[in-house]
Design a protein around this nucleic acid. Structure first.
Length: 509
RNA sequence: GGCGCGUUGGUCAAGGGGUUAAGACGCUUCCCUUUCACGGAAGAGUCACGGGUUCGAUUCCCGUACGUGCUACCA
């Protein structure tokens, strides 16, 4: 059975923008498709970047998307503890083991010394600025120092890191699930730090140790990790055997819609669309970054849109439920190239989903949106009628305010300009007569009303079409919405009469 | 700079040695509707460039260009 894991940076900036959520989604689809376990890991390797509340936020977003990510996977179970700070000693043991076996070494260089080395190399016109086989014997580390010197330095409390010792002049390769065989020349990979001076592991060490200990079989991550894959490969080789390494897939990047580069939070602010799943409030600055949810997206649409950005089933189907996606998903149809994000297409997906789903599915959310505009829903039946009537006109959930508002509040402004030019006393007479007509009617339904309306128009010798638009403006205030008689039937007899009378007064001024 | 990865319309993309090179978004026009939208019909628009290989290349190979990523005691 497969065991797939997704690993998150502890900040929404790193993990919860579109690219991050898509990584989770593909992990999830793959795991479900292969009847595997789906594991979410949140890491805190770099304390300086740890953002308070980020973990909760991440799970909240997954919950909104209805991705079953049991929080217990980071809080308990057979593989606990999960916090990297709580696993600190574990990583150190493996790092020491590597040193003992000659695959890693202690390095005492200060940042200044490393910087000086790079400056020197640059001045000499060297292309490579790496800390690698060619340079390590000139640096301050246990490879160059005598064993006693090294142990003396450590005993004296001199800060050190543990670096991997990458052997020169060899190649290492692996098969990526998306890209096929990828080969690296070890001369191009430098001696990465595995264990930092504070005793915490870097991502490189942590990801390998954790994946082994947690028995991970498949690991997907962004393309930006490809250049450091050889380090992970080497670590697997030395520590656990390369044959035990999980299968890797490096996902393409999501790019800015305009210009070039990886999509970032700033692009959303600049171009006016969200890049986070949900609103995120920065705990330090209190700045709020808008999310897809709050902008009126359905989770189904959000996920659907995201899945299609980099993957395609090879059929013409574009609208997928999550189950359909699981069914159709395959890793070898994930693209290699990055995709530019297109907000228009994202909105189109949402529109599709608003139509596809019964209104009851999202009526609670619409209710909340309306409540913010002081529209309180007390009649559920009426509310669901209204939703079904107007949903065809909505792209975002927030559009329901404009599209459904007039079913609750009579217009207070009217598109008088559209009516006034052709307004005359005949029309006024018609509507006065129409009021008394419908007043006497028991059966207040759209079809019967349309019938009376047309009969009366013929009687008064006015084309019904010339009267429908004024009626619409009377009821809605403007030129939009479903059929006028549908609207009238829905708001009811008395309200229809009230609105006509009120508008008449305005039109006749 | 070095190294990696990529490149089919404005965007997402199917396809893959011989095709009129699918489809979707967006855009334009028309129909429907005397509203707005939906829907329907049409339209404009594409294989980055240069060399090979081949009877034939958008498809395979090599270069170039462009894009993008990495090049931290960040992930």
């Amino acid at each position: 059975m497969s065991k797939v894991r997704v690993r998150f940076a502890p900040s929404p900036t790193g993990g919860l923008h579109l690219g991050g959520v898509r990584t989770v989604l593909y992990n999830y689809l793959f795991a479900k498709k292969n009847d595997g376990d789906f594991i979410v890991r949140v890491e805190d390797t770099d304390q300086s970047r740890f953002v308070q509340g980020a973990e909760e936020y991440i799970f909240k977003c997954l919950k909104w998307c209805e991705i079953e990510a049991d929080e217990s996977v980071v809080k308990g179970g057979p593989y606990a503890p999960y916090r990297q700070s709580e696993r600190k000693n574990l990583y150190k043991e493996y790092a020491e083991k590597l040193v003992a076996e000659g695959h890693a070494y202690y390095a005492f260089d200060t940042p200044e010394e490393i910087e000086a080395m790079r400056e020197r190399r640059k001045a000499e016109g060297n292309a490579s600025l790496q800390y690698d086989a060619g340079k390590r014997l000139k640096m301050n580390n246990s490879l160059r120092l005598l064993p006693e010197e090294t142990s003396d330095l450590i005993a004296a409390g001199k800060p050190y890191v543990i670096r991997i010792k990458v052997e020169a002049n060899s190649t290492i390769s692996f098969t990526d699930m998306i890209r096929g065989e990828i080969t690296f020349d070890t001369n191009n990979v430098d001696d990465k730090v595995l264990l930092k001076a504070d005793g915490m592991p870097t991502y490189h060490l942590a990801v390998v140790v954790d994946d082994f200990l947690m028995k991970i079989t498949h690991a997907f991550r962004g393309e930006e990790w490809l250049p450091s894959a050889p380090v992970h490969l080497l670590l697997w080789k030395h520590l656990f055997g390369i044959e035990n390494m999980p299968e890797w897939a490096h996902l393409p990047l999501i790019l800015k819609p305009d210009g070039n580069g990886k999509l970032s939070k700033r692009d959303g602010d600049r171009l006016g669309f969200p890049v986070y799943a949900m609103d995120w409030t920065d705990p330090k600055t209190s700045d709020v970054t808008k999310g897809f949810k709050e902008l009126g997206f359905l989770p189904e649409a959000f996920l659907n849109m995201l899945a299609m950005l980099g993957w395609n089933p090879g059929t013409e189907q574009e609208v997928f439920t999550i189950d359909e996606m699981i069914d159709a998903f395959s890793m070898d149809r994930v693209h290699k190239g990055g995709a530019k994000f297109d907000f228009e297409k994202a909105k189109w997906f949402n529109h599709q989903w608003i139509q596809k789903l019964p209104a009851t599915h999202y009526s609670e959310r619409v209710k909340n949106i309306l409540a913010q505009k002081d529209i309180i829903i007390d009649d559920e039946k009426y509310f669901s009628n209204v939703l079904e009537l107007v949903k065809g006109r909505c792209t975002l959930l927030t559009d329901f305010y404009e599209q459904a508002g007039y079913f609750y509040k009579a217009p207070i402004t009217w598109d008088v300009a559209s009516v006034k030019t052709k307004w005359n006393t005949d029309k006024n007479d018609f509507f006065t007569a129409f009021i008394s007509k419908i007043n006497s009617v028991e059966n207040f339904e759209a079809t019967t009303m349309e019938l009376y309306f047309k009969e009366l128009a013929t009687e008064k010798n006015i084309k019904p079409g010339d009267l429908q638009m004024p009626l619409r403006v009377m009821l809605v205030g403007a030129k939009f919405g479903p059929g006028v008689f549908e609207i009238a039937a829905t708001i009811g007899k008395q309200e229809t009469i009230n609105r006509i009378e009120k508008a008449l007064a305005i039109f006749n001024q």
